[in-house]
Design a protein around this nucleic acid. Structure first.
Length: 224
DNA sequence: GCGACAG
DNA sequence: ATCTTGTCGC
């Protein structure tokens, strides 16, 4: 007889420690939070000046070590006005459809820290590296983060689920929270100097750089 | 049975 | 996510 856990392991080899019970809890949590999801424009004020971007990078040698990154850009100049990093040990594995449970905790921590340190630069909207309502249950990382942080968010996917390889590499924009699709598309377009919108791109670049420098420091300690 | 499956 | 340097082009 095959247990539920065994089926889970067969389905997701990388998630050997994730039980079907945990998956069920995650599904319930998503369905619960989803009730608070707002798919229309609902901003604090009408002046959109600061836009945030979040991303997470992982250490290739030890994929449980990750660097969460938050950057804030001036929407008008697209210059970075704030950056913060958090080196953490990620416990939860990556399970397709449940990215938020792996990445949201660090990102929320970074947002909370900023709210205390630099509230005047706190973003009115956040671009998230991951999908919003473009998700099996309509509640991806961008929506998850938006609801928990009560912040307007937009999801940016670079690989759509179940898509065929297109010659053109598109990005997939989806509503995260408290923003309409029309507004989301308009804002994303206004932040694109290259394929990937600048807030996400800067978070990605700086996140990798942070890990690279961290590794150099580690190597120094081992050698000395 | 086979392929797909955000990061 | 990560594996990866130089190289073609604006």
């Amino acid at each position: 007889m095959i247990s539920e856990e065994e089926k889970q392991v067969k389905s997701y080899p990388e998630a050997a420690t994730t039980s079907s019970v945990e998956i069920q809890n995650w599904i319930e949590a998503q369905d619960l939070l989803k009730k608070k999801l707002i798919k229309e424009d609902e901003f604090e004020g009408d002046s959109l000046k600061y836009v945030g971007g979040v991303d997470i990078s992982f250490l290739k040698e030890d994929s449980s070590v990750a660097c969460g990154t938050l950057v804030v850009l001036n929407l008008q100049t697209l210059q970075v006005v704030y950056e913060d990093f958090s080196l953490v040990t990620v416990q939860d594995p990556y399970v397709p459809g449940f990215l938020a449970f792996r990445e949201a905790p660090v990102l929320l921590e970074l947002l909370e820290r900023m709210k205390k340190r630099d509230p005047h630069l706190y973003p009115q909207l956040l671009l998230v590296d991951g999908n919003g309502i473009l998700h099996p249950r309509g509640f991806g990382l961008a929506s998850h983060l938006g609801v928990l942080a009560n912040l307007p968010t937009i999801g940016i996917g670079k690989n759509a689920m179940r898509s065929t390889a297109d010659s053109l590499k598109p990005i997939y924009i989806s509503i995260g929270h408290r923003v309409s699709l029309d507004t989301a598309i308009r804002i994303v377009k206004s932040t694109c100097k290259f394929r990937v919108p600048e807030p996400i791109r800067q978070a990605d670049i700086r996140s990798r750089e942070y890990l690279r420098k961290f590794q150099m420091g580690m190597l120094k300690r081992e050698t000395s």
